[in-house]
């Protein structure tokens, strides 16, 4: 195992148990656990930590693969329109008032993600061109965004509206093992697809023509990307709402520790994404605010300055 991967793994092993102790109620690791504390630990904190690790890994891996696929360090898994598609599905479950029924919200979100994936595949067509693909993703994203706004503006009750808006901000608050049970297998399957795309992504470093001459089949790569990004991002949105910037920041930070081939970036980005989401979620829990800071907001607050710093550095390099 390479050094950065090993260090990240050690980081995760160290931070994960600590994260279980932190929160509104601090648990004392050396005292006997009261029944209440045991419930907090096994039914709230543990699934929440596992979910943070799973979703972070998925977003990190999807971001690394996306940047490789679009050959652009500013690409983000959100670009494909899959996250907005999943969010639209979830919003519809609130809108119809079915969200309270168990499993309905994630099911709607996953259907939304699947719909966006199918549309992507159809619009982009059989050419496998990354440019068409990106444009198709942007169309889907803006359409899903508009439909979401429509649903919010037409929401049947103010209560549904506030539920939708809060949910869209993305959080791991009050998540249970339910979310882990569907998000974990989908994310693992998605990362497996992205890893399979690794070699083709490496070849794409040389441009589309050279990649084809190296035996890459653009259409097959496109399907692997739709499947991989769709499963990881779809599962993420279904479980936690929209959590941005992880897929953008993490591959960026990790790239310098690799030989810069996209295939070599996927695993470190998955590990670093897992660690970042776990730490960020802990911070959200322990910050002394009236109500818990939403994870999606926290990451955007972290992400925006990061993005700005990145742009300023690129501007210097261009000058």
């Amino acid at each position: 195992m390479s050094r950065p991967n090993l260090l990240l793994l050690i980081g995760i092993v160290l931070v994960a148990p600590l994260s279980l102790l932190a929160g509104r109620v601090w648990l004392d690791p050396f005292a006997d656990l009261s029944p209440n504390a045991l419930i907090i630990l096994t039914e709230l904190r543990l699934p929440r930590a596992v979910l943070a690790l799973v979703l972070g890994a998925g977003l990190g891996a999807a971001g690394a693969a996306m940047q490789g696929y679009l050959r652009n360090p500013l690409a983000d898994p959100g670009l494909f329109g899959i996250a907005p598609g999943a969010a639209l599905g979830a919003v519809l479950s609130f809108w119809t008032g079915l969200a309270g029924t168990p499993w309905i919200l994630p099911l709607f979100a996953l259907l939304g993600a699947a719909g966006a994936m199918a549309l992507l595949g159809m619009i982009a067509g059989r050419t496998g061109s990354a440019l068409l693909f990106t444009l198709a993703g942007m169309i889907i994203a803006s359409l899903a965004g508009a439909l979401m706004s429509l649903a919010i503006s037409l929401s049947p009750t103010p209560f549904a509206m506030s539920e939708i808006v809060t949910w869209l901000m993305g959080a791991l608050t009050d998540r249970s093992w339910h979310e882990v049970w569907f998000a974990a297998p989908l994310t693992v399957a998605g990362i497996a697809l992205l890893l399979r795309a690794g070699k083709a992504l490496d070849a794409l470093t040389l441009g589309e023509a050279a990649a084809r001459s190296l035996g890459v089949e653009p259409r097959r790569l496109q399907l692997l990307m739709i499947g991989g990004v769709g499963l990881t991002v779809g599962a993420g949105v279904a479980a936690a709402g929209i959590i941005g910037f992880v897929g953008l920041i993490v591959p960026h930070l990790m790239r310098r520790y690799t030989d810069r081939r996209p295939s070599q970036l996927i695993v470190p980005s998955a590990l670093a994404g897992a660690l970042l989401l776990l730490v960020a979620d802990c911070l959200c829990r322990v910050l002394p605010l009236q109500s818990e800071l939403r994870l999606g907001i926290a990451l955007s607050l972290l992400g925006a300055p990061f993005f700005l710093a990145l742009l300023l550095r690129m501007r210097r390099e261009l000058a």
Binding site: R71, K199, T205, L206, A209, S213, L214, R260, R261
Partner: peptide
């Protein structure tokens, strides 16, 4: 068949050795 395209594009700043390694992908 080895093919060298007109615009020698390189999306990521690979090292010479890693770049040559891409030729081994097939």
């Amino acid at each position: 068949i080895g093919f060298l395209p007109q615009q020698a594009e390189l999306a990521w700043d690979l090292s010479v050795e890693v770049l040559a390694g891409l030729g081994r992908l097939p």
